[in-house]
């Protein structure tokens, strides 16, 4: 077990290294740079811009900037935002809650609805419900998220006036109800794709379990269909989903980014786009590393959990 852990851990570190290098290089490939935001300000002369460039350490060779950044990161210093000068972790922390709220609520929706559709589809295989669910899932995977959001805004905000077109809450009204009111549309939009994915996985997983011997035995023993499902199917099927959850994370983050853009949600996706727009390298790199670490952690935990439950996996 220890060897397995060390192996996985070292692989994860290599992965983070690769992510940071790719991110840093790609980010610096973008022309413009952090000073472009002053490009239209007639009072910022070339001298001023050169001075800022030097103060921000941007006139050094790229490899030196990278090593400096990476060395600080290893020591726990994520750097400071170019924009507001605050420590990167603070900046991320300030936007984390909004994103967690959005991702959390949409994940709850996705898992609840997806699991239900999946199991029902599997137990009522080839029924009309199953067929519709399959088609629906495929269509859901095909709708551009941002467009779905736009249509939602058009219908529910502009036409019907039921739901707000954006923001997390109304200024001066921090009530839970107000938050929920603002949360409905973005979390459904974000959940759509994941309902589709979860339901498909759940269906396959349930089918796998149903066909196994012990379920047949249980059924033969006269246990009710419902109890069999609850006890064996769901329990067993949820296992591979832990792995899925880890791998879903980047796409959930991407989805959150798109959704936050459309609904002006003050979360990490918004922060990411803004920071990219201002070439706020420390924050963008911070967000990349943050999400990469999350992904790696999820995968690691999933690996470990699976390995504990099913020791054969360790060998492969």
């Amino acid at each position: 077990m220890r060897g397995f852990l060390l192996n996985r851990l070292s692989q994860s570190l290599v992965l983070l290294l690769i992510v940071s290098v790719i991110g840093f290089v790609v980010l610096n490939l973008i022309p413009g740079g952090p000073l472009a935001q002053f490009g239209l300000d007639p009072s910022m002369t070339q001298d001023d811009l050169n001075r800022l460039k030097e103060q921000l350490g941007l006139n050094r060779p790229l490899w030196m900037q990278y090593l400096d950044w990476a060395w600080r990161l290893v020591q726990g210093d994520w750097g400071h935002s170019f924009r507001d000068g605050a420590p990167v972790l603070d900046v991320i922390g300030r936007h984390l809650v909004a994103t967690l709220l959005l991702m959390g609520s949409s994940t709850v929706i996705a898992i609840a609805v997806g699991t239900w559709i999946g199991i029902r589809g599997a137990t009522h295989r080839y029924s009309v419900f199953d067929y519709l669910a399959t088609v629906g899932a495929m269509v859901a995977l095909s709708i551009p998220t941002f467009w779905f959001g736009l249509v939602g805004i058009y219908v529910f905000s502009l036409r019907l006036g039921w739901l707000p077109a954006g923001n997390m809450y109304t200024i001066g009204d921090g009530s839970v109800l107000n938050h929920i009111h603002h949360l409905i549309m973005p979390s459904i939009v974000l959940a759509l794709v994941h309902v589709a994915i979860w339901s498909r996985y759940m269906r396959t997983a349930t089918l796998d379990v149903i066909s196994q011997e012990f379920v047949k035995t249980a059924r033969a023993k006269g246990l009710s269909e419902r109890r069999i499902l609850m006890k064996h199917v769901v329990g067993n099927a949820l296992l591979p989903m832990i792995t899925l959850a880890g791998m879903q994370l980047p796409s959930v983050l991407t989805g959150a980014l798109v959704t936050e853009t459309v609904f002006t949600w003050p979360g990490m996706g918004r922060l990411f786009l803004d920071s990219l727009g201002y070439s706020d390298y420390p924050v963008v790199m911070g967000l990349l590393m943050f999400s990469a670490i999350l992904v790696v952690l999820c995968n690691l935990i999933a690996d470990i959990v699976v390995a504990i439950i099913d020791p054969r996996i360790r060998l492969s």
């Binding site: 413009g32 000073l35 472009a36 490009g39 070339q46 201002y278």
Partner: peptide, 13 residues
């Protein structure tokens, strides 16, 4: 056309 962050960098300056 270019994104604002690119346009008003060296391209413009």
């Amino acid at each position: 056309n270019l994104p604002a962050a690119v346009m008003f960098g060296e391209f413009w300056l």
